[in-house]
Computed example of a mutant assay.
Amino acid sequence: MLLPLLAVLVRAPWRGLGRLLSDSQVLTALRLSLECATAATAVSLLLGVPLAWVLARANFRGVTVLRALVMLPLVLPPVVGGLALLLAFGRNGILGRYLDAWFGLTLPFTTAGVVLAETFVAMPFLVITMEGAFRSADLGLEEAAATLGASRLAVLRTVTLPLVTPSLLAGLVLCWARALGEFGATITFAGNYPGTTQTMPLAVYNALETDPQAAIALSLVLLAVAVAVLVGLRNRWLPTGGGL
């Protein structure tokens, strides 16, 4: 498992790394990646946290099916996900045709399309993290607050959210990292246009065919981000001092 990663480090063009990473096209791809991953994480926060609460707390027929649909992008091949987005939001898609006709809104092969593709594949990481947090939260504290006269909104703000905040932060970081590294759905749904839809993974793919040294340099950036995420979340996954 470590050998491929060591190979990247061994073959990395360390002396020319600064020059390769300072290229204007590389910087544009990096900026676009950071912006789109952050936007996708924000959308996932708005949609994913309420959805996780429903999956954890609601009790209705079909919740199991809803959970399976939400988690499907975790196991769905990214290219298939991109094709599904294209069939749904493309100009001739089920919803895309109406967005184009009524609002003049076109999502495929745009920066907004990148954000949509990244949200589709990354939001399940936030949902599954938050669902577990909501399930493990102490309901007794919420009931005690309600007994003392706190409204549902006050209970959510003062009790529930502080309890799940560590998991929320972990879920957001995982979601952001997954969005940053997304390739298959992005290239299928949004294309690979420099300055518009070419994110870092797509830039690596392009550079691999024309400049392998640049591809390795770009891969180092993504590798560094991945290592930072894993190190930062280590205490959320591994037992320390007898606790989780």
Results as ranks from 00 to 15, higher is better:
185 A>Q: 09
93 G>F: 09
204 V>S: 01
121 V>W: 08
60 F>H: 12
193 Y>S: 04
11 R>K: 11
24 S>H: 15
136 S>Y: 08
219 S>N: 12
107 L>N: 00
112 A>E: 13
226 A>P: 03
158 T>I: 05
97 R>L: 00
226 A>M: 05
86 L>H: 01
184 G>I: 07
192 N>D: 14
209 E>Q: 14
183 F>Q: 00
112 A>Y: 09
44 S>P: 01
141 L>F: 11
159 V>E: 07
212 P>R: 13
185 A>D: 07
85 L>G: 02
166 P>D: 10
17 L>T: 04
135 R>I: 00
14 W>H: 08
222 L>K: 00
212 P>F: 12
164 V>G: 08
84 A>Q: 01
229 V>I: 11
231 V>M: 13
125 F>V: 02
28 T>H: 13
19 R>I: 00
96 G>C: 01
161 L>F: 11
226 A>D: 05
61 R>V: 07
78 P>I: 03
173 V>Q: 04
221 V>G: 11
136 S>M: 11
213 Q>S: 15
88 A>W: 12
49 V>T: 10
2 L>A: 13
180 L>V: 15
172 L>T: 00
14 W>N: 08
174 L>Y: 05
29 A>L: 12
139 L>C: 01
229 V>D: 01
108 P>L: 08
135 R>H: 06
153 L>V: 11
96 G>V: 04
114 V>M: 03
14 W>I: 02
150 A>L: 12
89 F>Q: 02
39 A>H: 07
220 L>H: 01
223 L>S: 05
131 E>L: 02
119 T>H: 09
231 V>I: 13
220 L>W: 07
211 D>N: 15
144 A>I: 03
137 A>I: 03
3 L>W: 15
146 A>V: 10
105 L>E: 05
21 L>S: 01
196 T>H: 13
185 A>N: 11
